[in-house]
């Protein structure tokens, strides 16, 4: 079920205030003898009803983004920049500046739901699905009586049979566990959902089911940030796709545009690697995040490199999207 992607452009153009406005987000990890540049100067806006997919190779920093927004980074991380969350009801809050107490009480679970990567390990093994759901609902203000009904309703939403609700997590199949984890994230009805590789290890039908759940959530007004390495998944459900490479967003545009007319040579290379396209890899390796080259990090692997590429290209508006490249591919031109 691919809904028509809105024609509105990703960052900062119209459509009222963004639900999530990330501005200049930078995350560094200090190591004993190196600094990991996990996220660099990342900006993006996410509006209600929008599903934004962040795609990229493993180790490009995309997962760190999700953890930074939830304040779940380890102690040796330094985060700068802003990430303002504007819930429809309530005061806007800067997720980076606000303290752990506020995040724990007001944000995680309530304002931002997290669909975890491996549901089998994310679920408490000693509670049945029903108890997990009811506890979550009660923690978010449902009275006891209402929680029981609401639990069944949320479960039905994600396609869980009431009988399966009375099983313990280890008695559930991978797919059912994923549905339960999703139900738990959806139960408090958060306006923003973060899904961090929610489909790893699931088979196609389950992948599609999980993705469709997220899509349906968007269609009822929530915003979803989907982090994935799976381009097919992004293509199926995302309104806009942001491509991350070596800690930076290099391209961000509406899904059909990105898949049909990539502007960044890296995006083009990634698309060419798909089995239903050229099936040829991008040559070379991504750089280590501890040792990023000066200028455009894709330079060593890029066929279009010139001297200009030694300065970092700015992520600038480009034909309905955003692009950070000195020598973009023009639509229709060969890569």
């Amino acid at each position: 079920m691919t809904t028509t992607a809105p024609t509105t452009v990703p960052a900062g153009t119209g459509r009222g205030p963004a639900l999530l406005a990330v501005d200049g987000l930078t995350v560094r990890f200090r190591l004993r003898d190196a600094v990991v540049h996990a996220v660099s100067d990342l900006s993006l806006d996410l509006h209600p009803g929008e599903l934004l997919a962040v795609v990229g190779e493993s180790g490009c920093g995309k997962s760190v983004l999700a953890h930074a927004l939830l304040g779940l980074l380890p102690r040796n991380a330094t985060v700068t920049g802003r990430a303002r969350l504007h819930p429809a009801a309530g005061e806007p809050v800067d997720l980076i500046a606000v303290g752990e107490r506020h995040l724990a009480r007001q944000v995680r679970g309530r304002a931002i739901g997290l669909v975890p990567q491996s549901p089998a390990t994310a679920l408490t093994p000693v509670r049945t699905g029903r108890r997990l759901l009811e506890e979550t609902l009660r923690a978010h203000g449902h009275p006891r009586r209402a929680a029981a009904d609401a639990a069944e309703r949320v479960a039905a939403d994600v396609g869980l049979h009431p009988v399966d609700l009375d099983r313990y997590p280890h008695e559930l199949s991978g797919g059912m566990a994923q549905r339960l984890a999703t139900a738990l994230a959806l139960a408090p009805d958060p306006p923003l959902l973060l899904a961090d590789e929610p489909t790893t290890g699931l088979d196609r039908p389950l992948v599609d089911h999980t993705l469709d759940l997220l899509r349906r959530r968007c269609d009822t007004g929530a915003a979803v940030l989907l982090i994935t390495h799976d381009l097919a998944a992004a293509r199926r459900v995302a309104d806009t796709v942001a491509v991350m490479y070596a800690s930076r967003i290099v391209e961000h545009r509406p899904t059909p545009d990105l898949f049909d007319h990539p502007g960044h040579p890296y995006t083009a290379g990634l698309l060419d690697a798909l089995p239903d396209r050229a099936f040829t890899p991008v040559p070379g390796h991504p750089p280590m995040l501890t040792d990023l080259p000066a200028g455009c990090a894709f330079t060593p692997r890029c066929p279009r490199t010139t001297d200009a590429c030694h300065t970092t290209p700015r992520l600038a508006a480009d034909g309905g999207g955003r692009l950070a490249c000195h020598h973009p591919l023009t639509p229709g031109a060969p890569a």
Partner: peptide, 10 residues
């Protein structure tokens, strides 16, 4: 799982 590869000696 997506965290940056760290240099071996750390």
């Amino acid at each position: 799982t997506d965290l940056a590869p760290a240099p071996a000696r750390t």
